Computed example of a mutant assay.
Amino acid sequence: MTIKVGDKIPSVSLKTMDKDGMQTISTDDLFKGKKVVLFALPGAFTPTCSAKHLPGFVQNAAALKGKGIDTIACLSVNDAFVMDAWGKAQNVGDTVLMLADGNADFSKAVGLTMDGTGYGMGTRACRYAMVVDNGVVKTLNVEAPGAFEVSSAEAVLKAL
Rank of each mutant, 00 (worst) to 15 (best):
M1D: 13
M1K: 13
T2M: 11
T2W: 00
T2Y: 00
I3T: 06
K4E: 12
K4S: 15
V5L: 12
G6I: 06
D7T: 05
K8Y: 02
L14G: 07
L14K: 05
L14H: 03
K15T: 13
K15H: 13
K15F: 10
T16E: 11
M17I: 14
D18Q: 02
G21W: 02
M22R: 13
Q23N: 12
T24M: 09
T27Q: 04
D28C: 06
K32S: 15
V36T: 11
V36G: 09
V37D: 12
A40C: 13
L41Q: 12
L41S: 12
P42L: 12
G43I: 01
A44D: 08
A44M: 09
F45M: 02
F45L: 02
P47K: 04
P47C: 01
T48Y: 00
T48D: 03
C49S: 05
S50P: 01
S50M: 07
A51Y: 01
A51K: 13
K52S: 12
K52P: 00
H53W: 02
H53D: 10
H53Q: 14
H53P: 05
P55C: 11
G56N: 09
F57K: 10
F57H: 10
V58S: 08
A62Q: 09
A62C: 01
A63C: 01
L64P: 02
K65P: 06
G66S: 02
D70P: 07
T71C: 11
A73H: 05
C74M: 05
A80N: 00
F81H: 11
M83Y: 02
M83L: 15
M83P: 05
D84A: 10
D84P: 03
D84M: 08
G87T: 11
K88W: 02
K88N: 12
A89S: 14
N91R: 11
G93W: 01
G93S: 03
T95H: 12
V96E: 05
L97Y: 04
M98F: 06
L99Q: 08
A100H: 08
G102C: 06
A104L: 13
A104N: 09
S107T: 14
S107C: 15
K108R: 15
A109E: 09
A109M: 08
V110R: 09
G111R: 07
M114C: 04
G116A: 13
G116F: 04
T117N: 13
G118D: 08
G120I: 10
A125E: 03
R127P: 05
V131D: 07
V132C: 08
N134C: 04
G135M: 08
G135K: 08
L140G: 04
P145Q: 03
G146F: 00
F148T: 12
F148A: 08
E149P: 00
V150A: 08
S151T: 14
S152H: 06
A153Y: 01
A153P: 00
E154F: 00
A155F: 05
L157Y: 01
K158H: 04
L160K: 03
L160R: 07
